[in-house]
Amino acid sequence: MSKASLEATVDPEKVQGWITKIGSDTSAAVPLLQAIQSEYGYLPRKAMNLVLEGTEINASQLFGVATFYAQFRLDPVGRHMIKVCHGTACHVQGADRLNTSLRHALGIENPKEDTASNGSYTIENVACIGCCSLAPVMLIDGEAFPNLKGADAQRHLVKHAKSKGEILPGQTGEGDDQSADEKEK
């Protein structure tokens, strides 16, 4: 599956529904974007345009807000989301290695990319998620994995991928299981 096909199909009625529920004045900008993002995982251009048409919010404010806050993203995401915590406690206990080993397993080499080439997973760094005593921590689709080393992160990812029928395009330390699966398919 290519990355272009990760673009979401936006349902105008849904967007209108959020505007009706949340409001159409300028103070609704943040919650409206949050509603869109939680539905699609990112902010599709079409949904943003619908907000501009249906509210008092102008393009400068809407895009200004969308690019200001860390929560929002304008690019599509993979089918699953990995969030690696980079709070202080996670940093001093080696959170960087989680990224190294996860990216290796996902075959993401370009430092500017964050999504695997087959659209399976997106890795995002997040500021503290507040589980500092269990550092380093990551979340896969919202489920937390505590006290990780780089290799543990990879093992959890391999397990998750198997349970979801996803293929990891990169290499893992688990041996050849993955490539064997890949050949089968």
Partner: peptide
């Protein structure tokens, strides 16, 4: 309830107010 959208500067009170009003914090 206002959900913060991820901006450290919003801990500063005037930035937090701008955020509540729907602006960049």
């Amino acid at each position: 309830i206002k959900e913060g959208a991820g901006a450290f500067v919003c801990g500063e009170e005037t930035a937090l107010l701008a955020s509540i009003e729907g602006q960049r914090g």
